[in-house]
Design a protein around this nucleic acid. Structure first.
Lengths: 231, 231
DNA sequence: CGTATATTTGACAATGGTCAACTTCAGTGG
DNA sequence: CCACTGAAGTTGACCATTGTCAAATATACG
């Protein structure tokens, strides 16, 4: 999940690099999505493909009795849209006001969509590993690392060891992502805080004070045999 | 475009030939994979795309300490190969001698691969729901339904209510797929047996006696709200 | 047969869930 | 400026589902 969250081609820093269409690029129309208004993917995103410019979107599924599972958390640079989601049975919910830009139809976008699809699958598989085989502490540590990679962005000062990021998810959201209860998430977060691994004054501004310790907690990294390559 | 197969990544007895047909596609050559010999996906399947004709393949990942998670179980008709797995960090293991056929390069295969990619993602998301939010009994019931759909095939007599299929997975494999222990899987399976929902005389030949009851146990199906909707 | 592996079953423990009370904080209106 | 309200978060006590450990039994294979 946390190994290269944004694979090569798409980083939030360079969102426009690949738009070299044959015609003059119209300025990509940006839309702001309202926070916490869930969008059924079959509907809203039928219309095309989009890239998140700013904000945070959760993909989730629910069972008939209300149990909910968040499938992925998407930050700046990630794609969503019809070509990506057509087959899926889930909803997308912006966790904060979120700006998305429409991608033009064309081969460049098709290639990006294919990459995004592969990234989704790779993350889904890391998520399965997390859900099926990690302990609560490992889950929370893994989640923090993933979120830091997606949301700390360029704000990270070069000389600082600590990484701070805005946590767009509530404790309940984290629980639904990690297959836990919100109480367990809260307890684990506060245990990390007491252990000086992270810090937070407000519930939604998280500082990772000890990256190495957090990585150790996330533990159970894949054996090096597998880490060698990508692509 | 294709990267060279990394030497060492695969074991010696891999029965693949890597010759790419530049011209007329020969009739799809079929290969039989040896059971229980795990294939690193970075190696063996870099060479092309394949369709499972007969047998069963598990995709799995392992953590450094040995904890294992099976990500998907692939039966006849499912695809695997370079275009599908390139980005993934996992291994493929035939659970039984498995026959795969090579797919010719071309637009038809590209389309099939895209479909297969979407199917993988859809299944990964259903799997996340299962791992994160279902109980042991629900997990096992869901697994049996999935396996019956993939492996009971045409063998199901039209007039029979019961569905019988070969279970290529051991109890430990099921546990690694469902995020449980083998003991819990065994207990749950035997509870279903005592409850007349399933039956088995040999551990690997499963008969579903009461499909409706099993579906109820798998429970927590997606709410109909999601099954048909727009806008 | 005899050995190795898979499966079943039991007793017990622990991780994480449930229930409940309390705190904090942001927003609202007197 | 300050109660009042509701939502989110924290924390404790208790408990259940599932995991752990161990032993017995079944099954497959030379």
């Amino acid at each position: 999940m946390f190994h290269e969250t944004l694979s090569g081609a798409q980083t939030s820093a360079t969102p426009f690099k690949f738009a070299l269409p044959h015609v003059a690029p119209a300025p990509p129309p940006a839309t702001t999505l309202e926070a916490r208004r869930s969008l059924a993917l079959q509907g809203a995103f039928r219309a095309g493909n989009f890239r998140i410019r700013q904000g945070c979107i959760a993909l989730h599924q629910s069972l008939a009795d209300g149990r909910r599972q968040i499938l992925d958390i998407l930050g700046p640079g990630r794609l969503l849209g019809s070509d990506l989601m057509n087959a899926l049975v889930c909803s997308a919910e912006p966790m904060t006001p979120t700006i998305i830009e429409t991608l033009p139809a064309g081969p460049a976008t098709d290639a990006d969509v294919l990459l995004a699809l592969r990234l989704m699958l790779k993350r889904a598989q890391a998520h399965a590993m997390l859900l099926g085989r990690k302990t609560a502490a490992e889950k929370v540590a893994s989640a923090l690392i993933d979120l830091a990679a997606q949301f700390a962005g360029a704000k990270r000062p070069r000389n600082e060891r600590a990484i701070t990021f805005r946590l767009y998810l509530t404790r309940a959201d984290l629980a639904d992502w990690l297959g836990l209860t919100l109480e367990t998430v809260s307890r684990t977060l506060n245990a990390f805080k007491r252990g000086q691994v992270i810090d937070f004054r407000h519930a939604d501004i998280i500082t990772i004070k000890d990256t190495a310790a957090l990585a150790t907690l996330a533990a159970g990294e894949l054996p090096r045999q597998m880490l060698a390559q990508d692509r």
